[in-house]
Amino acid sequence: MSPHRTTLDTSGDVAVLTLDHAPLNLFDQAMFDALVADLAALTAAPPRALLVRAEGRAVSAGVDVHVFAGLSPTDAGALWQRLFDGIIAPIEALPCPVVFAAHALTLTAAFEVALACDIVLAGPRARFGLVETVVGLTPSMGGPQRLAERAGSGRARELVMTGDLYDAATLAQWGVVNAVHDDVDTAARALAARLAAGPTRAHAATKEIVAAWRSGGVAHADAVVPTVSGSLFATEDLQGAVASFLAEGHGKATYSGR
């Protein structure tokens, strides 16, 4: 078995977080702990984009069921709260674009992590499932509600209640997967690099406005726009891009993330 649960490369503007726990990248307690630690490090020093990917023949075959053995309802509630607080919320709160690359089987916790990311790319052989029904559970890291947001509540209930596996093409049609690529790792790295070279503060503002819509609808999002968007006029990126546009036209600006 690999000595790693995750690997994290923060050497450039694009941070790469890789699930690396052979043979099937099962989410055991050590994997959860590694993700919590990695995301804490990214929160403390955010990159300009994050790519979440995996090594091996599966993105993840799901959660190691040993994690659930002997849990009381109180214990389970505390576990889910820790995973929301330590994994899902930090991913969504990162002030940069987050891309998820799924090259193969992506089950349960890994699929829920994907649904917390901004953009999900998949390879043609990727398959996805929230299969917690096999142990009498419902997905509890935000999967049903985030799937409902992307695909509609009817599709979310179908996917969760049947516990079936769905291919990348189907989930692309549903709006869960943003795009399918033959070489998804290369495509995801290219997209993350492109986003990292963009106006990072503006990307963070986009995430903040969308988060406001998710929590309170269009009216709430409208209410935060003046402050969130207005603050961008103090950034070097906006000031430089406006000056570049006026002097040289469209598409000549470069961005530093400040």
Rank of each mutant, 00 (worst) to 15 (best):
residue 100 F to N: 08
residue 64 D to S: 12
residue 54 A to D: 06
residue 50 L to D: 06
residue 110 A to Y: 08
residue 106 T to Q: 02
residue 75 D to T: 08
residue 98 V to Y: 07
residue 80 W to G: 00
residue 88 I to R: 09
residue 101 A to W: 09
residue 98 V to D: 11
residue 42 L to Y: 08
residue 54 A to H: 05
residue 56 G to M: 07
residue 43 T to V: 13
residue 83 L to Q: 08
residue 77 G to R: 12
residue 70 G to E: 05
residue 73 P to A: 10
residue 85 D to S: 15
residue 63 V to Q: 00
residue 76 A to F: 15
residue 63 V to E: 01
residue 105 L to Y: 02
residue 108 T to C: 14
residue 111 F to H: 10
residue 92 E to M: 05
residue 43 T to H: 06
residue 65 V to G: 03
residue 110 A to R: 07
residue 103 H to V: 04
residue 104 A to E: 10
residue 44 A to Y: 05
residue 65 V to Y: 03
residue 80 W to A: 12
residue 106 T to M: 06
residue 111 F to G: 02
residue 109 A to K: 04
residue 42 L to A: 08
residue 66 H to Q: 14
residue 80 W to K: 00
residue 87 I to C: 09
residue 91 I to E: 06
residue 71 L to C: 14
residue 100 F to T: 10
residue 102 A to C: 12
residue 85 D to E: 15
residue 72 S to Q: 10
residue 103 H to A: 13
residue 62 G to K: 04
residue 101 A to I: 10
residue 103 H to T: 06
residue 59 V to T: 05
residue 78 A to V: 05
residue 80 W to H: 06
residue 70 G to V: 04
residue 41 A to N: 05
residue 50 L to N: 06
residue 46 P to S: 06
residue 85 D to N: 15
residue 57 R to G: 14
residue 53 R to E: 15
residue 74 T to N: 08
residue 70 G to Y: 03
residue 41 A to K: 11
residue 78 A to P: 01
residue 44 A to D: 14
residue 87 I to H: 08
residue 48 R to I: 03
residue 48 R to M: 04
residue 69 A to H: 08
residue 66 H to R: 15
residue 103 H to P: 01
residue 68 F to E: 03
residue 81 Q to Y: 10
residue 64 D to L: 11
residue 78 A to L: 14
residue 89 A to T: 13
residue 63 V to W: 00
residue 81 Q to H: 15
residue 70 G to M: 02
residue 94 L to Y: 01
residue 71 L to R: 15
residue 80 W to T: 09
residue 104 A to H: 11
residue 107 L to R: 11
residue 64 D to V: 08
residue 45 A to L: 04
residue 84 F to W: 09
residue 95 P to W: 08
residue 77 G to P: 00
residue 75 D to Q: 12
residue 99 V to W: 03
residue 102 A to G: 09
residue 57 R to W: 12
residue 64 D to H: 09
residue 70 G to H: 04
residue 98 V to A: 13
residue 68 F to A: 04
residue 55 E to M: 04
residue 110 A to T: 13
residue 58 A to W: 01
residue 110 A to D: 11
residue 95 P to N: 13
residue 87 I to E: 09
residue 68 F to K: 01
residue 56 G to A: 03
